[in-house]
Amino acid sequence: MKISLQEIHSNYEGFSRLIQLATQTAGCFLDDIEIDMSHVGWIDANMCAPLGAVLYMVGRDINSIRLTNVPASVETILSKNGFLCNYGWTRKNDIHGSTIEYKRFEPKDDRYFADYIEKQMIGKGIPEMSPGLLKKFRASIYEIFSNSVIHSQTKLGIFSCGQYFPRKHRLDFSVADLGIGICSNIRERRGLTLSAEEAISWALEGKNTTKSGPIPGGLGLKLLREFIVKNEGRIQIVSDKGYWELSEGTVKKRAFSEPFPGTIVNIEINTADAKSYRLVSEIRSEDIF
């Protein structure tokens, strides 16, 4: 089977193309799958996370995957972040330190994930981020990973990748899983039947949670949303057929014609944000409980 891929940006069209790839390859078994990249003039490097998730699923069904005609500029960036190492390329040195490596984690790899984030964030340094912002950003990434581990029920892993765009003062980071998706989770655990995009909205609002066991939950995505609004960044969430985006204070919701086989959370941070993340009023430890 030969599939031609197009440019992939972090937007509705980019996610649509990855869903199309997942749909085209679903059901392939013991097949030779050539992905022709000659029309991929650009790929936002963070989108390697959902692309890697789709290709991992294809590879699990014992298909051989060949990426062909990769344009030189795309090859350079995807060799620097380690994505192409999975498909027969060797790694290239990232002398500018602008990539956050592509990785796949098992759900139990939380310590390994933390180590990866500390090395990628602190080891390389994101020079213009204030310490308060960096702390919030790291915490947000950990919230996304924890959310995937707790809610996705994935056995196929969690995929992550990021890219720092110094001239735009933006840092994009994506986490993708191949789990049951937000919509099914809400239906199974809360008995609510919502469209996929409304299900994402539900998960980000008020005190909503699908948790039912002894450990409370439901805060992670709300904290992420609050931070991104203050930072004037962007969140995009794709789950099943749903697309949800928060950017410049506005929420956009759309549906895809086919589902993504899991959930993708992409955050874009405004790294030039000089706002203080210190609290306005002091909280006393005696007043917590």
């Binding site: 790291r138 915490a139 924890s146």
Partner: peptide, 10 residues
């Protein structure tokens, strides 16, 4: 250094 709601919930 880093804390999440998932950690504190548990």
């Amino acid at each position: 250094e880093s804390l999440t709601s998932a950690f504190l919930n548990a």
